[in-house]
Amino acid sequence: MTRTRWMFAWFGVLFILLIIVFPMYWGLRTSLTENGVLDFVPGRLTLMHYDGLFAGGFLTNIQNSLIISMGTITFTLPIALMSGYALARFDFPGKRFSAVLLVLPLLPAIAVLVPLILYMRGLGIYNTLYSVILAGTVFALPYCTWMIRGFMLSIPREIEEAALIDGCGPIKALFSIAIPLAAPGLISVAIFTLISAWNNYLFSFAFTTKRELQVVPAALLGFITAWGNNYGGMNAGAVVAILPPLIFFLIFQKWFIQGILAGSSK
């Protein structure tokens, strides 16, 4: 590379870094200073907004978000695993309809929320966390199944066939061979589901009415346009909301990226 190109590339990197990092820096800064202080680098930091946040019951929101994320994974993974395995390893009449799984995640969840509310009520789980978990599972399943199918396809079939000849049934082959080999894929599906569930706002908004059942994004949207712009408090909430997906992403990013690529290209 010539020098100008170098300069150009690094200028680009710096520019993109700036536009990505600055909003987050400003959010962090705002959460740690008193409202009204506008210095770029504040002189005095305070944890008052975090104190206010937790005194305001934000811990409950975090707990709800955790329960919902974990619940969504617990229900999504086994079902997606079974289905993904079936789609990757068997030929059967009607299999071509599985392409529907690619289209379903592209349809707007918000459109069917209204009928779903009546459904949840019918099931007696309206206004509980179960309904949010159920909805999260329903909307995560198509994409997750498709991703797992992709991972299973990338595992050489011969290994399993060898096991089958050894006398294992297909279920045993699934557990002893396919799952361990597809573990990185499963982890990426899990992380993907976790982050989407953590970030989802609509389901909690539509299916629960109580503050003690609200998830973090729903509580945060409540801050916006409620009464006044308490930017310190709102950004403290934002920082707390950012941390779990960010940490998970940083730890598992390799698998996560692999998963996204596998899911969208196969």
């Binding site: 993109i16 870094l17 990505i20 990092v21 600055f22 909003p23 987050m24 400003w26 959010g27 705002t30 009204g36 506008l38 770029f40 982050i195 953590w198 970030n199 989802n200 706002y201 973090v216 994004p217 945060l220 949207l221 801050f223 916006i224 712009n229 930017y231 709102m234 950004n235 909430g237 934002a238 909301a241 950012i242 997906p245 960010l246 992403f249 940083l250 990013q253 990226i257």
Partner: peptide
């Protein structure tokens, strides 16, 4: 690459909040 990917793992509500903070008519940087 890791840093470039961050905006995408954050909730829309959260990033909207960050943008509002930066663009507030009176206090936005």
């Amino acid at each position: 690459r890791t840093i470039f990917l961050i905006p995408w793992v954050l909730a829309p509500v959260v990033t909207a909040l960050l943008f509002r903070t930066m663009l507030d008519p009176q206090s936005g940087p």
